[in-house]
Amino acid sequence: MDDHRISRSFPDPEGDAVHALVPLTLGGAPAVVGKHGDGSLWTCDLTTGERVARPIDLGSAAPEDPVPDAEGIVWDDEDAFEDEKGEADAYEVVSRLAATRLDGRPVLVTGGGRFDLTALLGEDHMGGAVRCWDLATGEKVGRTRTGHGLGVTALAVLPSERGPLVLGSSEEGVLLVSALASGERVAEIRGAYNGVMAAAVVDGRPIAVTGGHDPHVEVWDALTGEAVGGPRPTAGAHVSALAVTGLDGRAVVLTGEGDNTLRMWDLATGRPAGTPLSGHADTIQEITLTRLGGRPVAVTEGREEPPRIWDLARAEQLGAPLAVPGEQAPTAVTATRIDGEPAVVTGHHDGTIRVWNVSA
């Protein structure tokens, strides 16, 4: 296939569909962490295409402390708690992914699906736990973070004065903030049902923006859990995707809304910032950010349609959607930088990884 926007293409000999991708740097080279439908993890070097399996120690996935059951009862008898433990379901454990570095080594943060704890603790328990793993050894780092009643829908890692923070939002709208290294709880935030979340450092302050089944978004201090101002109204009845970036010297919130439109809002005032961007035929499910020539660029992933790239400063789409003729829409999308230039990386039903030029 000949497409001038595709700079690299790496087929998968096994042909297993890619279900998620997150960028990171390994040994100085750009790479992605990916997962298959069975929950297995691997890395792909974006310069050579080499893939390496990355198993994690699922035997350590269980919470260290008793967890309330569906009735809110905590079984604190140690023997009873041990008897309840089952085997971790890899698919549930790695429902969501984020990658970062801790003390110089690459680590993977995973958010569990709604039946994550069910597999481990029995049918009276539900919810997704958040965990951190050493990517090289597969060993768990710190404690298993519980507290989500349903599945984790969004993950982020932010620097702070207290060290790196993990933010996990879930279907029921609970956002939990914890220390990356230890798993210690830092804050608990009540956001909107459906748990859409984005996070960033704004003016030196780690913040989270939450939305979902409400016609507004809310901004929170990630260290204290306190609201920053009141709710910011949106144009639509619900928010399906969120991101935070800088535009013309100010922080802006990007929202994917019910009318399939990408909008920008001034984070401080809640007022519209720029022209709404339309083109998707269905719900915008994810927004990934990068920069091109210093300008903020958003990559939007619609339901069962090719991703689109938007120059936010110019309020225009960059080129055609990232479609492969004769193929279904990508199954996973992320953005990274290769040799200093922005790139979009897509995963596909047949396991292929493609690297796309942003500016072409």
Score class of each variant (00 low, 15 high):
143 R>N: 13
206 P>E: 12
127 G>T: 07
168 G>I: 02
108 L>K: 01
94 V>R: 07
67 V>Y: 09
253 V>H: 10
198 A>D: 08
144 T>P: 00
39 G>C: 06
350 D>G: 03
87 E>M: 08
231 P>V: 01
113 G>D: 12
254 L>Y: 05
273 A>W: 01
89 D>P: 13
241 A>L: 14
249 G>Y: 11
265 W>V: 12
133 W>D: 11
156 A>H: 10
76 D>V: 07
82 E>K: 14
285 Q>V: 13
316 E>Y: 08
266 D>P: 14
311 D>M: 12
222 A>Y: 11
235 A>K: 12
103 D>Q: 12
322 L>A: 02
208 A>F: 09
129 A>F: 07
134 D>T: 04
14 E>Q: 15
44 C>D: 01
304 E>D: 15
307 P>K: 14
161 E>H: 08
144 T>Q: 07
178 S>M: 07
237 A>K: 14
147 G>R: 01
6 I>P: 05
236 G>F: 08
221 D>F: 10
133 W>T: 09
78 E>L: 13
168 G>P: 02
224 T>Q: 10
14 E>G: 12
48 T>C: 02
259 D>C: 07
17 A>Q: 07
261 T>K: 06
148 H>G: 01
252 V>K: 10
98 A>K: 09
100 T>F: 01
46 L>C: 09
92 E>V: 07
79 D>C: 02
165 L>A: 07
